[in-house]
Design a protein around this nucleic acid. Sequence first.
DNA 1: TATTCATGATTAATCGTTTAATCACGCAGA
DNA 2: TCTGCGTGATTAAACGATTAATCATGAATA
Lengths: 350, 350
Amino acid sequence: MNINRPLATMTAIAEALGVSAATVSNALSGKGRVSVDLAASIKAKAEEIGYVPSQAAKALRTGRSGVIGLVLPDISNPLFPQIAQAIEHAASAAGYAVLIGDSRGQIARQTEAIARLLERGVDGVIIIPRRGSRVVDIGAPVAIIDSPSTPGNTVSADHWEGGVQMGRYLASLGHRRVLLIGQSTTSNVQVDRLGGLKAGLGPDVRRETLWVERREAEIGAGQCLGLSAKVAEGFTAFAASSDLLALRVLTELQRSGIDVPRQASVSGFDDLVWSSVVTPQLTTMRQDLDLIARNAVAALGIGIGNKDTSVAAAPMAANGERIAMQLIVRQSTAAPVAVPEEIQKREESE
Amino acid sequence: MNINRPLATMTAIAEALGVSAATVSNALSGKGRVSVDLAASIKAKAEEIGYVPSQAAKALRTGRSGVIGLVLPDISNPLFPQIAQAIEHAASAAGYAVLIGDSRGQIARQTEAIARLLERGVDGVIIIPRRGSRVVDIGAPVAIIDSPSTPGNTVSADHWEGGVQMGRYLASLGHRRVLLIGQSTTSNVQVDRLGGLKAGLGPDVRRETLWVERREAEIGAGQCLGLSAKVAEGFTAFAASSDLLALRVLTELQRSGIDVPRQASVSGFDDLVWSSVVTPQLTTMRQDLDLIARNAVAALGIGIGNKDTSVAAAPMAANGERIAMQLIVRQSTAAPVAVPEEIQKREESE
DNA sequence: TATTCATGATTAATCGTTTAATCACGCAGA
DNA sequence: TCTGCGTGATTAAACGATTAATCATGAATA
């Protein structure tokens, strides 16, 4: 395009204006002492020749790359696009670029992925750890987005409180028999969400918990979870710990000829992209990912500013910010139809 | 962790062994002339002190950052996780790191996102352009993953041929009345897929095309598409241009009390994560994203090797590799039930 | 007139690698 | 003995920005 692009350096500006490179640097950064008119003409010249600072040189000199790493051990996580977008946005607002760190779904490679990022000279790392895996000290600023109940967590949605909200909402609709559905008990996030749900539903609501991973160990993966039987038992609401699970629940119920939400309500968590395209649209809890991302980046920024990287992680781990979740009511939840008498009786006698 | 980490430089190795830094560089890169035993002891020392080359210094000196940018204009694309993972893997195998470029869903910001990546000194950019947006010459190596029918496309799945496969499969099941469902006519990918579907279904199959975006302009977003009416008309198969659309179709049909696949078959494209968790599991076409990613990175590698970046894009645009798609048959498709007589008659009379 | 001081700009070193150019040295051929 | 050459290593100059230290200049003060 332009032959002078590689020449668009500070020295080039300096030579063109007959000043020293240091002056150019000072003018552009506004740090040293430069007369206003010289600074103006330097900036004009920079603009004119299309000057773009060399990140490599800056990184070499300052020891900061202006890049942070983002590690998502479970990249198949459907929330990934939204998280990545939120982090990228927050990071670029803070002047950072984001490098992808992928551990290819294997927990063991999480450390390896982090190491690769560190070799690339990232100034810090944001990690969304896979279910319960611990992050070792890596000698660099780290922000962990997991769950408030995870030790070392830096910032995350308040999954418990989100569960409470959803639980209260379902109870307020009149549901008195709710099935809580989680994928795995090793996930702090899911445990929190279901725990919150129980608390929110209150003591007057009967509930049962279904852990899909455990059930699948018996019946085989991908099999029906036997939800229509639960409806027959009198369950009127199915609260899943994630939209993915909610989707599974929704389609299984529909397949069994159960009308959602008339005969059974279904709710999820995360507000994934498809939540609003399915019929009926899914009621769910949304995380404020933008806010979470901003906090994570901010926490990192503090750490990066720290000279001593080995202790930088300590002050950050202290905050453990928890971000409120937002209830998104759509079509998959409604008040239950009148409970059949025989079930109501049995329930009372129990 | 170790105070000597910042000291783990080439010069440190050189001093420790009493040789020059140049010799260390030669030994480690295997380029210059170094005696085998000296090289061995240099490598040993490097290992010992935990030497990690400074990417910044290397980038400054060589003019190559070893980083490529990945631009996904529509980051909410549910295929993003898989694409990102594939690209990251292919890139790291080729010695590159991947920087996220996000245009926040806005087509106009695509160029802006690319510019930001370029400022970061990326050696090349992989772009998955949003529906039909053109990529301007950016004076750096670019690989475009879109559709073979897009001018400038570098590598992509053979969406048309994938459509043909799916069409043949549906026809072979015995479907004679198929509804093709796409989101937007501005997407080359979707147009290709539906075009291939038509070709694959052959002349004996009656079909109609539903463009959701167009329909929603009339009925409003998120409304029912009136698919049960189509079933009543005699349509036995619904072939969507993406899994997201297929999911919408599936749930709408189920909501209407239509049994999938007994009364209607549903198929999608992309094999997204949820395809196998819904009930019934979705029949779909899978892209070989790993192969696509490898090709894209390879194409970039060629370009990066080129000194003259302004013409580097030219030889790459020439290949336009198309990667075969793979049919994943699951539960959402089956042979149609016998067609009701009156419909069959009407069809014949038309 | 001599001293101090603020201002504005320059010098030069530095970050860690790469690489072309150079050098020292021993050995074979003339 | 002198020249030429291959081998193994060194020198030194980049790459482009940052920054502490220095310097020149003129105005204000003693």
